[in-house]
Structures are given as C-alpha cells and as structure tokens.
Design a protein around this nucleic acid. Sequence first.
DNA 1: GTCAGCAATAATGTTAACAACCTGCCGGGG
DNA 2: CCCCGGCAGGTTGTTAACATTATTGCTGAC
Lengths: 217, 217
Amino acid sequence: MPSGDDRAAVQEAIRGAILRGDYAPRQRLIEAELCERFGSSRFEIRNALQDLASHGLVEFQPNRGARVREITFAEVIEITEVRRMLEGFEAARAAERVTKAEAAALKQITRDMRAAVSRSELLRYSDLNKQLHGAIRDIAAHETSARLLRQLRDQTVRHQFSLSLVPGRPSVSLPQHEAIVEAVVAKDPSAAEAAMHAHLQSVIEAFRALSAAVAQP
Amino acid sequence: MPSGDDRAAVQEAIRGAILRGDYAPRQRLIEAELCERFGSSRFEIRNALQDLASHGLVEFQPNRGARVREITFAEVIEITEVRRMLEGFEAARAAERVTKAEAAALKQITRDMRAAVSRSELLRYSDLNKQLHGAIRDIAAHETSARLLRQLRDQTVRHQFSLSLVPGRPSVSLPQHEAIVEAVVAKDPSAAEAAMHAHLQSVIEAFRALSAAVAQP
DNA sequence: GTCAGCAATAATGTTAACAACCTGCCGGGG
DNA sequence: CCCCGGCAGGTTGTTAACATTATTGCTGAC
C-alpha cells in the first residue's frame, strides 16, 4: 500500500542504504531484491535508480543493470578541487551579502565547533562542519553552485567520514573554519575566498596523504 | 526495427531539436508526438527525457510530463559565474600540463580566430570559440570539472548564440582569448586563471547588458 | 584434472495495455 | 449573464507480461 510520495521516499531510502554502507561499492543492485526490501514495484525502483545515477551515486552498465559507483581517491581529490573553487566563490559572495543575524549565527557555529573539539566530540564536530558550509551556501544564495555542490557532496560522504576520523584533523581544520567565518563576518570577499581555498587545499592534502597511506599499508 | 544504440541516438536527436529551437522554452514535450517524430517507442522516449532532465535541459511536472526548461537571464548569469570559476581552474591546470604540441594547436586556434574576425565570419568564430574552450578542457584533463561544465553548456547554448550576434562582441573577446592562450603557453597558471576570469567576467557583463536591454525595449 | 560447449537460471530491457490525472467544454442553475 | 459541476478527450503514470541478455553450473571429451 504505497502512500502518495513514495517516488522521492524510495529514492531517499536507497540513497540512505548506500551511504550507510548497506551496499558496498561495485556491488550490483538487483531490482527484484530492492523491490522486496523497500516494498515497491520494479518501476519505482528503476526510476529511483536512474535518479541516483544522474546524481552519480550509482552507475548503469548495459544489460547488467545498476551498481554502486566506486569512487576512487583520485576522484575524491578531483571533487574536492572543484569544491575548492565553488565554495571559495560562495564564501566571497557570502561576505558581500551577509546580514548581522547571519553573521551572529556563523559565529555561534564556530563557538560550538571549538567546544566540540575541546570535548573531542568528533561526530558533533562533523555535523557542525556540515552546518557551517551549509550556512555559507545559504547566505551566498547561488542556486547553480548550490545545486552542483549538492551533487558532489553525496559522492564523498563515505570518504569525508574517514577523513574526520584522522587523529588531530579537527584541530587543524578548526582555525581554518574560524578564519573563513572571520572574513565573511568582516565582509571581506577576497579574504573569505582565500580562507576557503586554504581550508579545502588542506583537505585535499589530507586526502592525498590518506590515499598514499592506504596504497602502501 | 531499432538499431543497436538508439538509446543514445534518440536522446541526442531530442537534445538537438531543443537546442535548434524546434521546441520553445516552456513548451510541453508530448511523448506520443516524440514517438512519431523520432520513430521510437514511448519507453525509449521516456528514458531519453529523464536523461535530458538530469542534464537540466527539460523539467518534469508531476502528472504533466516533460517540458523544455526555461532558462532565465538570471540563471544564465549564475551559470556563467560558475563557469568562470571552473574554467579559470582548468586554465591554470592547463598551464601546468600543456605540451609543446598542444601549445602549437592552441596558438593555431587563435590565429584562425583572428582571421575569422577580420572576415566577419561569425559562425566560424563561434565554432573556434567552442574549440578553444574544449582544447583547454582537454589539456586540463580534469574529469569532474569537465563533466559539470558539459552539464552547464547545453543550458546556455541558446543565449550564447544570441550573445555572439551582439555587434562588436568578437573584437572584444578576441584579445581576451589571445591573452588566455598566451598565459597557458607560457606555463603561467595564475596568469592563465586571471585571463580566463577576466574573459568570463566580460561575458557576464555582456549578459547583464543584454538582459537589461531586453527588459526595457 | 581441466577446459570447451551447452543448457538452465536469473536479471535486465522492452512492449503493450490499463489506470489515474489534468484540461477544456458543455449545460444547468443562480 | 455568469458561475459551477460534471463529462469527454487526451496525456502521463503504472503494472504485468514478454523478450533479450548475462551468468552459472553441468556434462563430456581430451
């Protein structure tokens, strides 16, 4: 008995299952199995899979159906390089448009971040990280870049998670986040862009290090 | 009797028809009609339309099917702002990686451009413009940004076309293109990025002017 | 023991028919 | 004269069956 808006609900459920790791990269997603698991028809499953494919989370092989797309470290680095450009742009734009209320909210997030780091609350810090980047995106109010960034985000979630577990990583990124907020609040676009660039450059280098560490265990 | 790779062929045909203007923005794309025109089944048409929707060329309304997505001037400007960032990044990267053969090819394109401008061959210039941006994209060899830029390109084709008809526009952009190539060939990443930024900034301003001119006829 | 060929199975790609939905028109009532 | 309800046509959304393609496991010969 499917309720009205299963179209989006099923897609969200499958996405959640993939991001949660229920399905591993390169694992085939068999339509009949998904039908049973999510209580939907094959038609809905196919639609959901095609949408997920357009977001880059799964890929189709001719006559072999859908499977979870494997994202290599090289690709994560590429994605982060693009994020560096687009989020840098958003930070500059946010610095031009930020209101007093928004500035206060940004500063509150960095205060919470600092508290989370001092208490070693990794999950909390990771969540605040998402909040901060999201807040800047909202202030920038740039539909097109927001859409593209959202497309890229899902593909790196698994790796972002592993990055946040690197010991000492939060203490490195915390001052970078603070510098970004400082520049945005000061309404200094080029400083905001530079701070965001520096932050994501450091993320890129962390990924490179992680990649090398995994390649030679 | 559909040949093997109609899947992509039909999609390409519909895309072409839209870009050529056979279907106007906001016009509904009736599946049965497309079936007859392109000699395909409704299934293939639906697949093609969904792919086109994921590229942003058409949009779906619930229970009302697909229609050509209307792209406003505001959106074209947003898209060009993103292009400015990504193509600037690609230009910098191209400057780091360019080989001698590639440099020669780039310079040849600018020579052809200059010739096309002096002969007022607008269409030829527009084509060379695409070639130049494409060559830089190939030299940069950055899958992720190339994918996103391709996604954005289609959406602005119609407006790009109208921009290339603005009198005097080629003589403005020609030196900008030459500056980009010069910096790339000189293997100067930051100059290449700056030159690309300046070029696309000028495109943005041309769009703004065009938008204002259309708004108040 | 191993490998090629083959048949059975499983999964996807496709088709055609059906159901749900929006739209525009017509007629009746206020 | 205008507004409202419902009916008819057309269009999309969905379902179930069918065709096609990969995969797997077996058989038999070498």
